[in-house]
């Protein structure tokens, strides 16, 4: 589904790589947490998957396509298979909830008929039935993020990328969003979520990929935010002092 082979990303004017020789494979249907401190390269990883950035070296395959071989004219069509959600929602303030979600379909040329079926469907999925006529500023943060998720999944993407989707939300609201993301994942969408929300990662017990300074230092199935064993690279073998 997503495969990184020795991917390094160095931004111009920044000597230290944002991602350093990253090797990673994410399979269809997985739910993966990308964890790590600010600046560890989580967003860079997601942007590379979206082909918003090019890797400095290495190869990226997404949905069976070599991203290095997709011409820039084809990139939009490639992106239609991906949904994206951000910490700051990125809704259009002058459009209603319905229109925000419909916009996605309009700009990729879907018919009116299709839009009028798909948008209410997506709004129902995220639990916003009957709120299609509201404007973003009339909604709570959690509701706005649900609109953003509805927009991301309305075209039934195979992969949903979420960059700290709960970063602006309180814990209770975050739980609601996580339940929603799990439901979307259960329906077959691969979900990759960057976060540094310890509670959420610990509770869900999903695959955890940890980045430190652009390197993968841990890739654990059913893991928690903090690792069970100390870092091999930074500490010599010794008693496991770190609490699970």
């Amino acid at each position: 589904m997503i495969r990184f082979d020795e991917v390094t990303k160095v931004y111009r004017g920044n000597a230290r790589p944002a991602l350093n020789a990253v090797d990673l494979e994410i399979l269809a249907g997985e739910f993966v947490f990308l964890v790590g401190a600010s600046g560890s390269g989580k967003s860079s990883f997601l942007r590379l998957v979206l082909k918003e950035e090019r890797p400095t070296s290495g190869q990226i395959h997404v949905l069976g396509q070599d991203l290095g071989r997709i011409s820039s004219r084809k990139v939009p069509y490639f992106r239609r298979n991906l949904g994206v959600v951000f910490q700051d929602f990125r809704l259009l303030p002058n459009k209603t909830v319905f229109d925000n979600v419909a916009f996605t379909l309009q700009v990729i040329g879907k018919s009116k008929g299709f839009i009028h079926e798909a948008v209410p469907d997506a709004l129902a999925t995220v639990g916003l039935d009957g709120k299609g006529g509201r404007f973003p500023h009339e909604l709570s943060g959690g509701e706005q993020q649900r609109v953003a998720i509805a927009r991301a999944v309305v075209n039934k993407p195979s992969i949903l990328l979420a960059d700290e989707p709960t970063g602006n939300l309180d814990p209770a609201t975050s739980d609601g969003i996580m339940t929603l993301l799990q439901r979307i994942n259960a329906n077959g969408t691969t979900v990759v979520m960057a976060t540094h929300d310890v509670g959420i990662v610990d509770r869900l017990q999903r695959r955890v990929v940890e980045l430190v300074g652009g390197r993968i230092v841990r890739d654990e199935r059913g893991g928690s935010y903090t690792q069970a064993v100390p870092l091999v690279r930074e500490q010599s073998f010794g008693p496991a002092e770190v609490t699970p």
């Binding site: 490639f78 992106r79 991906l82 259009l92 916009f103 700009v107 040329g109």
Partner: peptide, 17 residues
């Protein structure tokens, strides 16, 4: 730019944008 960003994200074709 907001609309443009979203259009690019959801895969509106260059010609459409």
């Amino acid at each position: 730019r907001r609309e443009l960003g979203i259009m690019r994200l959801v895969g509106a074709s260059n010609r459409f944008i």
